[in-house]
Design a protein around this nucleic acid. Structure first.
Lengths: 115, 115
DNA sequence: TCCTTAGTTCAAATATCGTTGAACAATTGG
DNA sequence: CCAATTGTTCAACGATATTTGAACTAAGGA
């Protein structure tokens, strides 16, 4: 459907550069928080505008960090955990762990707890 | 001497963004290859021009990834391993491991073997 | 069919980044 | 003192990246 890089096309410098943005890091943390549950674009509207979230999700997908699938009018995004782990062992875990304990990143935790 | 951020000033998005550059990643890999041995700026001239290496080393230092100390006319740079490990456990290791097995990055391995 | 929902695409503006050469400072050695 | 070595700083340029609003597509429901 949407273009996704093959595992061998996923490049370390690009992955790091794409993760090196607060909004994208917040999205990745949110994707990891309830691992496996696919999330649509609207899930991240607290982080940025609709059009901007779309831009950042495209960056994540093009870097090979996420997988996005169209279902109806929605697009469900998940982390490409296994592929990233195979290509760069331990990298995603350590980034997520660091991001989870980073109070400076935008978060949905609180809003979620209230729901 | 030169300005270095304190550990609590080292920010995850910035660390990732700074690591997300092929030249800086090659420098970090080189610093890690013979861990502990401080290296001067000239050590990296195969990666970029003198002025450009200086620029990238400053980025690494300002992000808190490296420590640079002036000795005579040279400046010796090392990785801030312990501080980074304490702040972001496993991150540096996984990045270095991934970088080591990345044939696309510029390398000094061959030149070194001949020496 | 019409309207709403979900998200993308485009062009434009701004900002930031990477690279270069020239000029500079500081230390070392003859 | 003079010259070579080591590396930084500066201004400039070109290339990317981020952000925005407006226009657009596609699917679903009333």
């Amino acid at each position: 459907m949407l273009p996704h890089p093959f595992p061998e096309q996923i490049l370390l410098p690009n992955v790091l550069a794409v993760l090196g943005d607060p909004i994208r890091l917040a999205i990745v943390r949110e994707l990891a928080r309830n691992a496996g549950e696919p999330m649509n674009c609207g899930r991240f509207l607290d982080f940025a505008s609709k059009t901007n979230v779309s831009y950042h999700l495209a960056k994540l997908r093009e870097a090979g960090i996420t997988h996005t699938e169209a279902v109806g009018t929605s697009r469900f995004t998940t982390l490409r955990r296994q592929e990233l782990d195979a290509r760069f062992p331990g990298l995603l875990d350590s980034v997520i762990n660091a991001a989870v304990s980073d109070g400076a990143l935008p978060s949905l935790e609180q809003a979620d707890a209230e729901a």
